[in-house]
């Protein structure tokens, strides 16, 4: 799989280098902390150890104990404390060691952090980030895609990038945003995906999807690791004369409805691919949006390729069966194209 596929928006990677997805995230934090002394990192094992996946390697060494804070195993305390810090004009980044553990702070996030601005005019500029997703045999508690719990929570922003360029640019945008932003990092991509990033400072706008590949026969919407499977499937479809338009959602909340609707109005068919489970996944929301805003333009059913409605199983054979992949996308897309 090629990383940085269809480099978004500006496309200029002058003086850029090929870095991993993980390195992009590390660089984003490093550069933001370098740029702004109000940016801090707080989480479990983020300091001396540099994070369970080494996303914060070198940060403590450079920025010291007050700015890179190792905490007890207390996700609610991490999120609550970061929220308190944000009230003083600080911009904390919280790391969840695995994103699965974010639900331990569910109440703190959904009731306190998310509601603050609407209710009490108390914005909380903070980022909650962590490694998510399956495909690495992490088992049921280290493979989660819990994004939709939070997409259903007004007040939050939810980002789930697929390329090093976007990961770096969106994480920087998240740190500078005045709202609480959840930033999901698909761990399958951490060291497998490389891409160009510019040497100069840049951000990627939150709330904007990007067309990764243009096509006219159907639209494939996806994000994160499944973005790469979707592009792989699109390559296969092209060999059969089916040109899929592939869109990377990048931000799930707020969702870029315009880009989705525009594409479907062009192709008249839509397939949504996500690694999250099917029921209550974002495909359902997108289906509703298309029924509301592009019903007359649809020439076929909205098709979903998603994980099964089960926990993420542990055995490689089970997990492979559970997860969507390029082959499943290819098969579903081909069928939809011929509808």
């Amino acid at each position: 799989m090629a990383g940085g596929n269809g480099a978004p928006t500006n496309g200029s990677a002058t003086g850029g280098t090929q870095i991993t997805f993980l390195e992009a995230i590390r660089q984003a934090m490093f550069e933001e902390m370098e740029r702004d002394p109000t940016v801090l990192l707080i989480g479990e094992d983020v300091g001396v150890y540099g994070g369970a996946f080494k996303t914060s390697e070198g940060l403590l060494e450079r920025f010291g104990w007050e700015r890179v804070i190792d905490t007890p195993i207390s996700e609610s305390a991490i999120v609550g404390a970061a929220c308190g810090m944000s009230y003083l004009g600080l911009r904390p980044i919280c790391e969840m060691q695995f994103i699965d553990f974010i639900v331990c702070a569910f109440n703190q996030i959904t009731n306190f952090v998310a509601k603050g601005h609407y209710l009490w005019n108390a914005p909380a500029p903070m980022v909650i980030r962590g490694p998510s997703g399956g495909g690495v045999h992490g088992g049921p508690f280290h493979s989660a895609n819990p994004e939709m719990y939070f997409v259903h929570t007004p007040g939050l922003k939810v980002i789930y990038p697929s390329t090093p360029y976007d990961a770096k640019g969106l994480l920087k945008a998240a740190v500078r945003d005045n709202n609480p932003v959840l930033f999901f990092e698909h761990k399958f991509l951490y060291r497998r995906i490389k891409g160009d990033v510019p040497a100069e400072d840049y951000t990627v706008p939150i709330g904007k999807a990007v067309v990764r590949r243009e096509g006219q026969h159907l639209t494939i919407l996806s994000y994160a690791a499944m973005m790469h499977s979707s592009l792989e499937a699109a390559d296969g479809l092209a060999k059969e004369g089916i040109e899929a338009e592939v869109i990377d959602l990048r931000t799930l909340l707020p969702l870029d409805e315009q880009t989705i609707v525009n594409s479907v109005k062009k192709t008249n068919k839509c397939l949504v691919v996500h690694e999250d489970t099917k029921t209550g996944g974002i495909a359902g929301e997108i289906a509703a949006i298309l029924f509301e805003k592009a019903f007359q333009d649809l020439d076929g059913p909205l098709v979903r390729v998603t994980a099964l409605d089960t926990p993420v199983p542990y055995a490689p054979t089970l997990e492979e069966y559970f997860l969507p992949n390029a082959r499943k996308v290819f098969t579903a897309a081909k069928e939809l194209a011929r509808y």
Partner: peptide, 26 residues
């Protein structure tokens, strides 16, 4: 800082304000 109805949530938040204040030298 505003309270919410879920009890205890303010404790880490106020710990965070305290740590943040110390960080800023207040």
């Amino acid at each position: 800082v505003s309270p919410i109805s879920m009890l205890g949530d303010l404790i880490p938040v106020m710990a965070g304000v305290a740590i943040g204040g110390r960080y800023l030298g207040q």
